[in-house]
Nucleic acid binder design. Structure first.
Lengths: 191, 191
DNA sequence: GCTAGCTTGTTTGGGGTCAAACGAAATGGA
DNA sequence: TCCATTTCGTTTGACCCCAAACAAGCTAGC
């Protein structure tokens, strides 16, 4: 085994040898595998090009983006739109607040809720940063025509929709009645 | 603003209002955004369906997969194939080794290198787990035909290739000469 | 031989991630 | 008017993740 990167063809060959005896959904496997390769590569590039000079992480940028588009919003809604858990958002919002990009305000009617919004500095940052970010999005998609980009986006949307509509039911059917060990992580009960 | 999930149409509307004044690459933006939505949703589903009963994380499974396909391999190569950094692999391999799924062996000729391989238990686990994992991959891709899956995979491969071929050069051009603050994270020099 | 430079896996520090536990606040029924 | 239940955001614990620093080991050039 030579000390170099393996080619796609070599990987396909090795997979074929190992999986020859299995019945497998090859095309679906390729789709899922490449979604993750692409997501990691794109995120890596955007963090190290557009975001790095502003010392923003991917997630931090996404949260700023959501607030930029929607204006003031409740935290649960921001977490939902940003695709992170509410617990994660607490930390991200704390960081962005400490950098004066995001402001936190109590809900006028409900003492439990918190409203987030961009500060003027946050707005200004997004106005300067967004064009740069979008240019890098265009760069990563260079090999695809606009039509191909839309086709790609629609295929991915279909997968997301499938999981939103049927994912929970599927997991319930698969795991119901199993002796599921509790998740290793997570806060422990005090008892 | 009602207390419910926002629809795609509402998001499009809000983006249009906010970005009306910007020249933007809309199709590429949609492609990139959906890559990440889909990646997160798929990973979430697979972790909570196929992997959860075996108490495996996504990354742990990917490392087992690489070793299953390739057999014994050096750590740098496993990290490369799994799409994680060598530092991350150290921790994952340690965890998998403690669970007796992976074995670590010194390289016969080079004292710096380490060879990883599956233990018999690891092999057995993969033989049982892979069909389940693949079935869930097929489930998430249900709305797409096999041909559409391949088209999707090819589009994503093109993006990965674009970044592999031109990403570094692009980042160099963008950031060269900038007063880049050093990354906030990372080990500090002892001095 | 020696040693300067390179390569390899590990350590470290800062941060991201989830789900469960939790406290505070709102709600609803008796 | 209670008070049990629900619903918020936050805290916690275990883990993931990267890049820079590091130590151990290899290799070239002298």
């Amino acid at each position: 085994m030579p000390g170099r990167r393996r080619s796609n063809a070599e990987t396909e060959q090795a997979v074929q040898e190992r999986l020859g005896g299995f019945e497998l959904q090859r095309e679906q496997m390729a789709a899922v595998a490449n979604i993750h390769r692409a997501a990691a590569a794109v995120r890596q590039h955007l963090e190290n090009s557009a975001l790095r000079p502003h010392d923003l992480t991917w997630t931090g940028f996404v949260v700023l983006w959501v607030l930029w588009i929607w204006g003031e919003a409740e935290t649960w809604s921001v977490a939902e739109e940003a695709g992170i858990s509410k617990g994660t958002l607490t930390g991200i919002a704390r960081t962005l607040e400490s950098r004066r990009l995001v402001a936190r305000a109590p809900h006028p009617e409900d003492g439990r809720r918190v409203l987030l919004s961009l500060t003027p500095e946050g707005e200004e940052l997004m106005e300067r940063l967004f064009p740069v970010f979008n240019a890098e999005e265009a760069f990563v998609a260079t090999p695809l025509s606009p039509e191909e980009c839309l086709r790609l986006a629609n295929g991915l949307r279909a997968i997301v929709a499938q999981l939103e509509e049927h994912g929970e039911e599927r997991r319930r059917q698969l795991l119901d009645g199993r002796d599921l060990a509790p998740r290793r992580s997570g806060r422990r009960s005090r008892q």
